[in-house]
């Protein structure tokens, strides 16, 4: 496969950055997208040029590290996959592929295709946890009865890998799907209900501080989410937030 790559190059967060065009040859359709990027980088190193910096880690779709906005979509074409699970057979010989970093005020570019997603960490730290006794008296999780349906919904929400595709694709660059998954996962379970009100208020406050936009319910995030997190979670977040805003002491 012969491809033309239009890649966003940016030296550092202060640099303005621009699109550079590269040609790669002998790309196997069995390669993953990241392997294709590896080929490009080896080629660039051989030419004495700076390789393209991009995020990656597990390369099996569970760590949420890889990002990239490929041909106008986060994680490229295809549903329910991350960039590392995207294979070159999704493209045709001679294609031009645009590769850009995730764009949001909350995700500043560090270098090339790497963005700083620590905003998500700070949102998690604001309330995405439960306070439990770990001093040797930990209660066995199975001792607390949980309805199967709730457990399933909580698990579905917990599959969010925090990759940021929802923010990247949202026309408002809103992080609501991410926060809703994190809030839902805990709000659905008895262990999480104890701190539910403070949690949702704190996490939403942090989300606003990080500079993400507002949700206008377009549903693009749900379509692009590699883990298929449902909009149902955003409604639950709205419910939790409304309830907490009205009834919480804070």
């Amino acid at each position: 496969m012969k491809l033309t790559l239009k890649v966003w190059r940016q030296k550092n967060s202060d640099d303005k950055g621009k699109i550079e065009t590269y040609n790669v040859d002998n790309i196997s359709e069995h390669m993953s997208f990241l392997e294709m990027m590896d080929v490009l980088n080896e080629q660039l190193i051989a030419e004495g040029k700076e390789p393209v910096a991009f995020d990656h880690d597990c390369r099996e779709g569970i760590c949420g590290m890889c990002s990239m906005f490929i041909n106008g979509e986060p994680h490229g074409p295809g549903k329910g996959i991350t960039t590392c699970q995207l294979h070159m057979r999704s493209f045709n010989d001679g294609d031009t592929i645009y590769i850009e970093p995730f764009r949001s005020r909350g995700f500043p570019v560090i270098k090339d295709l790497i963005v700083d997603r620590s905003a998500f960490d700070r949102i998690q730290q604001a309330g995405g946890y439960i306070s439990i006794n770990t001093s040797g008296n930990t209660i066995d999780a199975n001792a607390t009865p949980i309805p199967k349906d709730d457990a399933d919904k909580a698990f579905d929400a917990a599959t969010c890998i925090g990759c940021g595709a929802c923010v990247a694709t949202c026309k408002n660059s809103s992080a609501m799907l991410f926060i809703s998954a994190k809030v839902s996962q805990l709000a659905l379970l008895p262990q999480g209900k104890v701190e539910a009100k403070e949690r949702v208020l704190a996490m939403v406050e942090q989300m606003d501080k990080e500079g993400f936009g507002n949700c206008s319910n377009t549903g693009a995030c749900e379509v692009e989410c590699p883990k298929g997190i449902s909009l149902e979670n955003i409604a639950r977040l709205n419910r939790e937030f409304l309830d907490a805003s009205i009834t919480s002491d804070k």
Binding site: F69, G72, R103, N172, S173, F212
Partner: peptide
């Protein structure tokens, strides 16, 4: 919302 994405996507 417009301000939340200061640099737009090329594609």
């Amino acid at each position: 919302n417009k301000k939340s994405r200061p640099v737009k996507y090329v594609y």
